[in-house]
Design a protein around this nucleic acid. Structure first.
Length: 424
RNA sequence: GGAGAGAUGGCAGAGUGGUUGAAUGCGGCGGUCUUGAAAACCGUUGACCGUUCGCGCGGUCCGGGGGUUCGAAUCCCUCUCUCUCCGCCA
């Protein structure tokens, strides 16, 4: 969430910048400022009144000690009156404070100045394109869902039977390919200086709230009502929430964490060709990188993370492009997001395999994650994360792009991880 | 699942109704000493909100919420979480 003080001081700027995200904040901002004023004046009055009764209480204590009972009784009456007034002021203050928070939750993060205007993904800006587009022979041009059947490496039907759509079984070389990719991605991250974590796959409400999944995206997460825990949609949630309610030291920067995890997404409302085969699953595997950084260095870090992801795709020999998301496509919590898409040759479409974002202080403000600067002042940290990488669509592209009549070729960089160079 | 214990500052750990935001130790920061470091010694060291140009001043916070009282870290209720023992079990 945005900082209240920033909105107060830069009202028009906030409204203008949010227009890039196609978000009309004018009414919310007006209301926010009004309610905040109520809160502040209530607090001022309350504080003054508490100061008086606090002083009186101390005096009563002294009167009792020195045996001046009558004076004590007199003061008691006064404090009782003050108490009633304080109660009313307190509830006014609390109600306004709650209202302020409610409004703040509804206001998205401000987009970075480089975010292009636009309504939908069609308006995203392609900033880089790289790699050779595969040319498939006519007798070897099958979508991955046919290849997985042919080589019996992923069983969607079995998943339907045991769980439901979107929960496939990986089998034989399919399972080993998964394991190889996970290890490859983790090793690459560790070599780049990230600390590996194995996080919990279920998180509590406070964590879901900290990274911004709650309250608005509640329907996208699987929820265990009995224990009030949520299955993580990404390792970003546990990995970032490590730092909830902490005050870090400047020397701690940069914090670089990586985790492999299963990710669970309800994907309510998805349909059609988007969900065919591996294109969209309810459970999938992902290696996620997270950085906590000094505000001044956050955008350099974003570049570094972008380069890390690009290198993974180069090593996997997949043609890819990088997009800067437009205002309409950048998420609620993000200031700037860069997507990576790989070309999947048989489907002949670009598949999103990574999303790298800078949240600036938006998550940090929700999580109360701060650091002490050189002058001893506390400031909010900046948080960033990115997929490095999400597996299913990588597998889809690998299968489709590398298919031959003899079988599916494994890219060189992966062979030492898979232990085989061909799926046949 | 059953029984019990507990939740205090970055950490450890006192405090059972009256200037207690909270003893003490550790850690952190500054200094003395030292060629430098360590040790020792001295000093300092919470967060949030409001107010002020600033110094400052006021308020809140001892797991969360509610209550008793003129006054609560301290008493009562309630919720959550953690730990220990038993049971079950990878």
């Amino acid at each position: 969430m945005l900082q209240l003080k920033y909105i107060r001081d830069n009202k028009q700027e906030v409204i203008d910048r949010l227009k890039i995200k196609n978000f009309d904040a004018s009414d919310l901002v007006e209301e926010l400022i009004k309610v905040d004023e109520t809160r502040r004046s209530a607090q001022k009055e309350l504080d003054d009144s508490l100061a008086v009764s606090k002083q009186l209480s101390k005096e009563i204590g002294m009167f009792f000690k020195s045996g001046q009972k009558e004076k004590a009784e007199e003061a008691k009456i006064k404090t009782t009156e003050l108490k009633q007034k304080a109660k009313e002021l307190e509830s006014l203050m609390n109600n306004s404070a709650e209202e302020v928070r409610r409004i703040l939750f509804e206001i998205p993060n401000l987009p970075h100045s480089s975010v292009p205007a636009g309504k939908s993904e069609a308006d995203n800006e392609i900033i880089h394109e790289e790699g050779e587009m595969p040319k498939l022979a006519a007798d070897a041009k099958f979508p991955h869902w046919e290849l997985t059947d042919k080589y019996q490496i992923i069983d969607f039907e079995l998943g339907n039977k045991v769980t439901g759509a979107g929960f496939p079984f990986y089998r034989g070389k399919g399972a080993r390919l998964q394991r190889a990719l996970i290890n490859f991605f983790l090793d690459e991250a560790i070599n780049a200086g990230y600390i590996e974590y194995q996080p919990p796959l279920l998180v509590n409400e406070a964590s879901g709230f900290g990274t911004g999944q709650l309250p608005d995206k509640e329907g996208q997460m699987y929820h265990d009502a009995q224990d009030n825990l949520y299955l993580i949609p990404t390792a970003e949630v546990p990995l970032t929430n490590i730092y909830r309610d902490l005050i870090l030291k400047e020397a701690d920067f940069p914090i670089k964490n990586v985790a492999y995890s299963n990710c669970f997404r309800r994907e309510a409302g998805s349909y059609g060709k988007d969900v065919r085969g591996l294109n969209r699953l309810h459970q999938f595997d992902k290696v996620e990188i997270v950085q906590i950084q000094h505000p001044h260095k956050a955008y350099d870090t974003l570049e570094e993370m972008k380069e890390h992801v690009a290198n993974l795709l180069r090593k996997l020999e997949l043609p890819f492009r990088i997009l800067r998301l437009c205002g309409g496509d950048v998420s609620f919590t993000s200031a700037l997001t860069i997507d990576f898409e790989v070309f999947s040759a048989a489907q002949e479409r670009w598949l999103e395999v990574s999303s790298v974002s800078n949240f600036e202080s938006f998550q940090a403000n929700r999580m109360m994650c701060r650091f002490k600067d050189k002058d001893g002042k506390t400031n909010l940290v900046h948080t960033l994360n990115g997929s490095a990488l999400a597996l299913p669509r990588i597998v889809a592209a690998l299968l489709e792009n590398n298919q031959t009549v003899e079988g599916i070729k494994i890219p060189k960089a992966l062979v030492s991880y898979t232990g085989f160079d061909m799926i046949d």
